[in-house]
Design a binder for these strands. Structure first.
Length: 314
DNA sequence: AAGACGAAAGTGGTTGA
DNA sequence: TCAACAACTTTCGTCTT
């Protein structure tokens, strides 16, 4: 983890240097994951990475100085995550309290110990949860803003006493899954499971539980949200990406996406877009990246090409 | 031989009585 | 709580390049 942090900081430094040299150069790729699919959302006045969801600039007006803001913001966010300190202070305080006492304070002491024991274990599991969120977010190449959001949700769940008796692994995995969806850069359940230590069943159980208990609304993922990441995993360029998105938009208009899994739609659209652009990827390759079977890709792709009257000649 | 195709049976999640 | 249901997967034989 330390190594990863250093790696990131180096990246940032490199970028900064480059920026200084070129003056007001436009940001071309995500400093977090290196993806080139940056999206300008003028409605929200921000630039974010379509691959990992990192908000790079929240005020598009002035690009230059915004870089520093991004860096220092990242620093302060990182600094705020440092829960272990409280734990240490907490622990130290304990040892001094216990020393003096007489008579009936034996019982009082017991109570204290019990209470501090509880405080200790919840504190400890909280720290563990944060480190788990961090570990998994690293593995999924998610930016700090999403990590922070997931941590905040965890805190919320803790305040509502939703954690006790449940596996931290399941909760944290589900929270990351939720947060990714909320930030418009969904990960598949399978991707989350791969880096999680619990099985998919438990993650989805925790997912449903948290949505209910925290009153969270997660709109169904759009196939479009998956396109940038799948495309870069398949080493397909921006033209194919936009072609795939165009296909999905048409498909949505024609109501071909209703009731269908968004990942399958995305997979098929990418498959078609790649062929149309002369950069053929086999159904197997697309299937490996997206996690849906070739059969599903075939079914979606048949529906799409027939209904949208796209001639796909191999 | 590899990729694409499609039929058929199986699986897990949702819904409505 | 249970059965029906649609989407998706698994498996496998066949066709095409």
């Amino acid at each position: 983890m330390v190594a990863l942090k250093r790696d990131k900081e180096e990246k940032g430094d490199k970028k900064k240097g480059k920026n200084k040299a070129a003056g007001k150069e436009e940001i071309k790729e995500c400093p977090e994951c290196g993806s080139k699919s940056l999206v300008r959302d003028y409605g929200k006045a921000e630039i974010f990475c379509a691959d990992c969801g990192l908000v790079i600039s929240e005020n598009i007006v002035d690009l230059g100085p915004e870089w520093r803001a991004f860096d220092s913001e990242q620093m302060s966010r990182r600094a705020r995550v440092g829960a272990p300190m409280t734990y240490r202070i907490h622990d130290k305080g304990l040892s001094t309290v216990v020393t003096w006492g007489s008579q009936s304070q034996g019982q009082r002491l017991k109570k204290w110990q019990q209470r501090t024991h509880i405080a200790n274990t919840t504190e400890r599991s909280f720290i563990f949860a944060l480190s788990e969120i961090d570990r998994m977010a690293c593995a999924l190449r998610l930016p700090v803003n999403i990590r922070e959001a997931a941590s905040m949700l965890y805190r919320k769940a803790m305040k509502k006493r939703l954690i006790r008796g449940r596996s931290i692994e399941g909760i944290t995995s589900a929270l990351l899954y939720i947060t990714c969806r909320q930030y418009g850069v969904p990960r598949t359940l399978e991707e989350v499971r791969e880096i999680s230590r619990v099985e998919q069943k438990e993650i989805s159980r925790a997912y449903r539980f948290l949505l209910r208990e925290l009153n969270l609304k997660v709109s169904p993922a759009s196939p479009i949200d998956f396109v940038p990441r799948f495309c870069s995993l398949l080493d397909l360029g921006g033209d194919i990406r936009s072609k795939a998105i165009e296909i999905i938009k048409k498909a949505t208009e024609a109501e071909l996406t209703n009731g269908r899994g968004p990942i399958g739609i995305a997979a098929a659209a990418i498959y078609i877009a790649a062929i149309l652009s002369g950069e053929h990827r086999t159904q197997k390759e697309v299937s490996d990246v997206t996690g849906v079977t070739e059969v599903t890709i075939r079914n979606r792709y048949k529906e799409l090409s027939e209904q949208l009257e796209i001639d796909v000649l191999l």
